[in-house]
Amino acid sequence: MTRRLGGGSLVIATHNEGKLKEISALLGPYGLKCISAGSLGLPEPPETGTTFVENALIKARAAAEASGLAALADDSGLSVDALGGRPGVYTADWAERQWFEGSPGRDWYMAMGKVEGMLQQLGPDTDRSAAFHCVLALAWPDGEHAVYEGQCPGALTWPPRGEMGFGYDPVFVPSTRDGSETFAEIAPSEKHAISHRADAFAKMVADQFGA
């Protein structure tokens, strides 16, 4: 049986207050007080893993060991079948500007264009199947851990459409919903209900707080 979280504090291994707020809303009903690694002054460990699971565990374990509390981390990204699963764990890296491409930051249009360019090089009949993945890793200070994997299958389209998403959302059409709208064209509440993160959280909640 998977070890279960008790009440009390749970460290969310992030320095992003938006992510902390989102996760707090999801876990608040289960008696957990979520605090961010950033608010505790914990450093962000290098994400040296080659899979979503490895990177999520690296972050969760580092936060649990440094804080002495149970910790939750996530790692997510896009995998494209025809590209051998890329960009995968390098999903965000593909959007990083190089020194000659302007000010530091992420250019998601550039990243979407890179994916599209590689698909077009493979020919007009190339399989455009893709999926968003999310891995949630729970870790305790004594080393015990649990992992929950979620995904949202779909296909890529071009050109980008929609203004409501972020990242690769404007080129991703989920297959878990009828229609041809991209993630960036549907209401955020609708997206969150079918997303890879929702799938992973549903599995975690069922395992941790189910009967």
Rank of each mutant, 00 (worst) to 15 (best):
K203G: 11
D107E: 10
L27P: 11
K21E: 11
G143Q: 09
S175W: 05
D178H: 00
A70I: 07
E22C: 03
M164G: 02
F132T: 09
E65T: 14
G7E: 10
A70C: 15
A184R: 03
L26N: 00
V80C: 04
D127A: 07
G113F: 01
M110E: 10
F132R: 08
V171C: 01
A184D: 02
G77I: 01
L27C: 06
R128Y: 05
A82E: 11
A64C: 11
R4G: 00
S79Y: 01
G31V: 06
Y30N: 02
P29L: 03
F209W: 05
L40E: 13
I35R: 11
R128L: 05
I58W: 06
M204N: 10
S195V: 02
I23V: 15
A92D: 14
D207V: 10
G162E: 08
G85W: 11
I12C: 13
F100G: 01
Q120A: 07
M1L: 08
Q121V: 01
A37C: 08
T126G: 00
T51S: 13
A155I: 07
D142G: 10
K59P: 15
L27K: 07
P188E: 04
R86E: 13
G8M: 02
P141G: 09
S129G: 12
M110G: 11
D75C: 14
P43V: 10
E101V: 09
R161E: 12
E116N: 14
A130P: 02
L122V: 00
D199M: 08
W94V: 05
R197G: 13
S79T: 14
V173N: 02
E44Q: 14
W140F: 15
D127E: 01
G84V: 03
W94D: 06
A202Q: 15
E185D: 02
L5E: 07
L32W: 04
A63W: 04
P87G: 08
Y168R: 10
C134Y: 03
R4T: 12
I35P: 05
A71C: 10
T14F: 09
E144K: 09
